[in-house]
Write a protein that binds this DNA or RNA. Structure first.
Lengths: 221, 221
DNA sequence: CTAATATTCAATTGATCGCTTGAATACTAT
DNA sequence: ATAGTATTCAAGCGATCAATTGAATATTAG
């Protein structure tokens, strides 16, 4: 076979991965799976899809090698196949935000005036946390925190933040994070903390991006 | 509008970038454009597509913000929109090679027994070149070298390698590179040099990956 | 065993995509 | 102006895709 045809076949095979990413529904499924494995009906509920539709999209992602499945009892749990997949998802978002005006506008609308809160970069947080200068706050639900979180982070789910404020020392800056750049919980947390006199910022990105970058994480017990 | 619908729209807009990458022909076009800007008919000839077809694919890439066009005389020159696009292209290849067995097999078939030549990583080459331990050899055609090349690289196009061997000092190791991981010129060069007694290896990836990683490049004159 | 639950499968519909063909447009050289 | 070249446009065809619907399969609880 000529090298031209071989190269064409090769790129056509690589393109299948991009095709699998070429659907808003599948990108959303991947975002949720980046938090940890999830069952089909959980993913269907989170994305607002029918179960049958979610199942078919998950199978498309599996055929492209982007997710893996594990069966336990009557449930099937899907998860991203590896950190490289999360990084690819992230890279796609970055390019889309920087190259498509429509995406930039949608992000601005979505974040509203919250966009103004300038985020802390992962490397910066890592350095400041090492020196004990900041409290790292995970505002996701308890189960997600327990499955995996940034090393040394404290967990106060966003709906309990007001009642458990006492756990956050006032003198240190708080850096909050949640599920990712399109998750609003850390924005809310920062706003609430600032209103009550804390110095607070949010982490750029969220938990999946941190983990995919190979930065330190830990699980509870 | 509810945040769910906004998020759905946002991801649908991001997915358009992935859709643009979801075609082997467009991935090949991007590979060629990563070397530098190219006219429509040059790209059509390189990929073996009809001119009309290439034009349409290029417009699809432009709608997705991945390439930009410049008109000069009666020709239109297309180029990748930025280094982030090259990095995304690269990330896609990495995921496809690591996650799809079919892609791994096609790569092996394509590279044949050449796959055995273990490549030099970019960071390693940078360090060794700084100490003057290696000769960096660009085996691409002269025009491509002149447009842009790794800083300090020597240019001997692959078809003139035999006749200009004298330009390569025998005692230093040679590291050869070309257009990218699916370009065979550097493999040939390494094989030829080794046969004649040189110590030679090839650079992992190629020129576009080096440039997109922000490593030092320069142009002639 | 039976009922209930979770997931997958199969068939259908409308929409979109990829490629071809042939014509239209834009620019250059003479 | 005219001819030649480069690119884009428009129409058409077959293939693929996304979502819905309803049924089939697999597993657990009682």
């Amino acid at each position: 076979m000529s090298t031209e045809t071989m190269k064409r076949e090769l790129y056509q095979a690589i393109a299948k991965v991009a095709q699998a990413l070429g659907s808003g529904n599948r990108l959303q499924l991947l975002e949720f799976m980046a938090q940890g494995e999830r069952s089909v009906d959980a993913l269907a509920a989170m994305t607002g899809m029918t179960v049958a539709n979610a199942s078919q999209h998950l199978q498309a992602l599996r055929r492209a090698g982007l997710v893996a499945a594990r069966k336990d009892g009557q449930r099937v749990y899907y998860r991203v196949a590896g950190d490289d997949v999360v990084r690819l998802h992230h890279g796609l978002r970055v390019v889309a935000e920087s190259r498509l005006a429509e995406v930039r506008q949608l992000v601005n609308e979505f974040l509203g005036d919250r966009g103004g809160l300038e985020p802390v970069l992962a490397q910066e947080l890592l350095a400041r946390a090492k020196k004990g200068l900041v409290t790292v706050l995970d505002v996701r639900p308890r189960e997600e925190y327990e499955a995996c979180h940034l090393r040394g982070a404290v967990n106060i789910p966003i709906d309990r933040l007001e009642s458990e404020l006492a756990r956050l020392p006032r003198k240190r800056e708080v850096v909050a994070y949640c599920r990712g750049p399109y998750c609003l919980m850390s924005f809310e947390a920062v706003a609430a903390l600032r209103q009550r006199g804390w110095k607070a910022r949010r982490l750029e990105g969220g938990f999946p991006e941190w983990k995919a970058a190979g930065l330190p994480v830990e699980a509870s017990s």
